[in-house]
């Protein structure tokens, strides 16, 4: 399998002296869907901005599909599409003009630019808005416009920096299915997000960056397997006065009819239900307390800080 992205000992110190990246290295294989996670200010956007030539690196090496961004920048950039966190298109341009112009910047001729513009505006549901000024679009439409713009030159590696920030649930789900389809068709995707559910749903590999260093890089499956305890919220049919004692589990009464139970992944839920039955407590429904990835992420980042 090709390596889509290879980042080696990447360092960035801003002019004020702030060291944003302290020598990070990671690889993304072709066809992968990778989540780049980290708290605010961890260095995610700096990393992405360096890969896309928006920020100058202090030292280190970045290769995109075997092309060095310093010595073979045109070939490297032809392979990258970027969807930034902030809106960065001309607010006074028409939607179709934004895409056609971007296609032109990548050297596409006018006919191909028109054809791609139509293709991606239709795919992202913006074709009806093609003659509207971009500032008239809603927030969700602006996000989709940036995705369409990033795809217009059909890059092999798509980088999305918090693409669903501020987007409603329905649109977020439709963007997920679009990105999954794009990945199935062969586009390598790197995603940064604060919605850990999103990363868990979409990504096969994960890298966590904190204080300018990679603190975790593995497959999503292997990463989630590290979580050895799970917490459930049980809704009870009748109020109880105190949390029942369950062997091998931690219990806490959230309110008189809601019980939180934390137990090891190896323990059986049947035993929990059997004991509750013995105590005359009936469970009407059950759900996971929190996103599994979120639990691991928090424990990892907090553990690092401690």
């Amino acid at each position: 399998m090709d390596t889509a992205l290879q980042v080696s000992d990447l360092r960035k110190t801003y002019s004020g002296g702030f060291e944003a990246l302290k020598g990070i290295s990671f690889e993304v294989q072709s066809g992968d869907f990778m989540a780049l996670l980290g708290p605010n200010g961890a260095g995610k956007s700096t990393t992405i901005s360096i890969i896309c030539s928006l920020v100058n690196k202090t030292s280190g090496k970045v290769m995109v599909y075997g092309h060095d961004i310093d010595t073979d920048f045109a070939a490297a950039k032809m392979n990258i599409g970027i969807v930034p966190q902030e809106f960065n298109f001309n607010q006074f341009e028409k939607v179709a003009d934004i895409l056609r112009t971007q296609a032109g910047y990548y050297g596409l001729d006018a006919a191909t630019a028109r054809q791609r513009t139509e293709k991606y505006l239709k795919l992202l549901g913006l074709w009806d808005k093609r003659d509207e000024t971009s500032r008239m679009l809603s927030g969700g439409m602006k996000r989709r416009l940036m995705i369409a713009r990033a795809l217009v030159h059909e890059p092999r590696l798509l980088i999305l920096d918090e693409p669903t920030a501020g987007v409603d649930i329905e649109l977020r789900r439709s963007m997920w299915s679009f990105l999954k389809q794009l990945n199935r068709e062969g586009t390598t995707i790197i995603l940064t997000t604060h919605y850990l559910e999103e990363a868990e749903q979409l990504c096969r590999t994960i890298a966590i960056i904190d204080h300018g260093q990679i603190i975790e890089q593995s497959s999503m499956k292997a990463f989630l397997a590290k979580l050895d305890r799970e917490t459930f919220i049980l809704d009870l049919s009748a109020d109880v006065d105190a949390a029942p004692q369950l062997e091998g589990a931690r219990t806490e009464l959230i309110d008189p009819h809601t019980l939180e139970v934390e137990l090891s992944k190896q323990d059986s839920l049947n035993a929990v239900f059997a004991r509750l039955s013995e105590l005359g407590i009936t469970v009407t429904s059950m759900r996971n307390k929190a996103n599994r990835l979120e639990e691991l992420f928090v424990s990892l980042v907090e553990g690092k800080q401690a």
């Binding site: 896309c52 030539s53 928006l54 920048f73 045109a74 070939a75 490297a76 950039k77 032809m78 990258i80 970027i82 930034p84 902030e86 809106f87 960065n88 298109f89 001309n90 607010q91 112009t101 971007q102 910047y105 990548y106 050297g107 713009r149």
Partner: peptide, 17 residues
């Protein structure tokens, strides 16, 4: 104005010399 609106980034990420 391309700097102000950050649309200069459209050119910076492109392979244009």
């Amino acid at each position: 104005s391309t700097k102000f609106q950050r649309s200069v980034e459209e050119m910076l990420v492109s392979p244009m010399p």
